[in-house]
């Protein structure tokens, strides 16, 4: 089964995204911070990573760069509260970002993206 990693500090968004991914027939690993990532996870190749950018102790851009570097994946979707155009441009400047969704989000759009890429 293809795998998706969801990283969101907000428990409610985390659960909703986990559910969205699961009903779309993916195996989902949902965590609230990178600390919860196991060595096994770091070795599995995720079809999607859906992540926030606001986490303790790491700058948003650096976080995305770190995720890109340490977790093998095919697509990276950013879902965040800090969704200003300026941030969006900076995130896309990091390259290889599949999508950027600013809160409030239309979950159907994320679902469509997952279905389109998978």
């Amino acid at each position: 089964m293809r795998k998706v990693l969801v990283i969101q500090e907000d428990l409610i968004i985390l659960k909703i995204l986990e559910r969205l991914v699961t009903v779309n027939h993916f195996d989902c690993k949902a965590i609230r911070s990178l600390d919860a990532l196991t060595i096994e996870d770091q070795q599995s190749d995720f079809e999607f990573i859906i992540t926030d950018i606001l986490f303790e102790g790491i700058a948003p851009l650096e976080f995305v760069a770190q995720v890109q570097e340490i977790i093998p994946h095919k697509n990276l979707l950013v879902v965040t509260n800090m969704g200003q155009d300026k941030i969006k441009k900076e995130i896309f400047a990091l390259k290889d970002i599949t999508g950027f969704y600013a809160v409030p989000i239309d979950l159907d759009e994320i679902e469509a993206t997952i279905q389109a890429y998978s």
């Binding site: 606001l54 102790g57 790491i58 700058a59 948003p60 650096e62 800090m82 200003q84 300026k86 941030i87």
Partner: peptide, 11 residues
């Protein structure tokens, strides 16, 4: 510096 960079603020 890394600590100061991680402060959350859009602008």
């Amino acid at each position: 510096v890394k600590s100061l960079l991680s402060i959350q603020y859009p602008y």
